[in-house]
């Protein structure tokens, strides 16, 4: 039972979130929709976005999974502070992330000289896009996975160890399969976040068709010159996001 009056603010809230989406749909020039979203620049941007987001998700998995395990399964001094700091990109304005990345990987950044010696130029490259996306997306994976790890608890791991399984075997055969739903939904969230990344990319990576101009940057740029195309691409991004979230929900349920 919930009080009846709750429905009114709930409806207002839902409308507030859904109306802008409806407005995009209403604003789309359907007669030109297909032409607009299949222009060379749009296709380049979509393909770049998908490629970089997939790569960023992979990096999140590679480094975020161990991080979540360490946070969930161990305790050491300063862990609480570390957790808060690791989750910072969740609440940080993305442009701040971009500036921070610039001062890390940029030419004059902390690692800039070392990278230059190695002949690696990060700024203005697709690598920069992937770095920016990984930076903002990783916390999503870590949070989601750490939650799953805590929910799953350690009882199965203890049993597995008592049966003679070494830590790596336990991790591979017990821990990972048990938190697979969390891992999948975390990855999907990270992918979605990477797909929508804008601020850090534009600050850090620049904007060049096919190299660093992802879908959100393309939309931002078209907004000034070709509003119809910007709206059409926005809808594409909305649809991709809806698909991704729908997929995450279904995977979460079927695995959980």
């Amino acid at each position: 039972m919930i009080p009846r009056w709750l429905y009114a603010p709930a409806a207002v809230g839902a409308a507030f979130l859904l109306l802008p989406l409806a407005a995009i749909v209403a604003r789309v020039e359907w007669s030109e929709f297909f032409t607009l979203i299949t222009s060379e620049a749009s296709k380049d941007a979509l393909w770049l976005s998908l490629r970089t987001s997939a790569m960023a998700t992979l990096l999140c998995l590679l480094f975020g999974t161990p991080m979540a395990v360490v946070l969930a399964r161990t305790s050491f001094p300063g862990q609480g502070v570390l957790r808060s700091l690791v989750l910072l990109p969740l609440v940080l304005p993305p442009v701040v992330g971009g500036v921070a990345l610039l001062y890390t990987f940029g030419r004059r950044g902390l690692l800039g000289h070392e990278l230059e010696v190695l002949g690696i130029q990060v700024a203005f490259s697709t690598t920069a896009v992937v770095l920016a996306q990984t930076f903002v997306a990783m916390p999503f994976l870590v949070v989601s996975l750490e939650g799953s790890l805590r929910t799953a608890g350690q009882r199965y791991e203890v049993v597995a160890a008592s049966l003679g399984a070494a830590p790596t075997t336990v991790f591979r055969r017990i821990t990972l399969p048990l938190v697979l739903p969390g891992l999948v939904s975390g990855s999907v969230l990270a992918f979605a976040r990477a797909l929508g990344e804008f601020g850090a990319t534009i600050t850090f990576a620049g904007s060049l068709q096919g190299v660093t101009r992802t879908l959100p940057l393309e939309i931002y740029q078209l907004r000034e010159t070709d509003v119809d195309a910007a709206v059409a691409l926005s809808l594409v991004l909305v649809v991709v996001a809806v698909l991704v979230i729908g997929f995450a929900g279904r995977q979460g349920r079927s695995l959980g």
Binding site: V158, V159, A161, S162, L163, G164, A165, A166, P167, T169, V170
Partner: peptide
Amino acid sequence: PHDRRVAL
């Protein structure tokens, strides 16, 4: 634990 041959 995994080297003890003690099952739980």
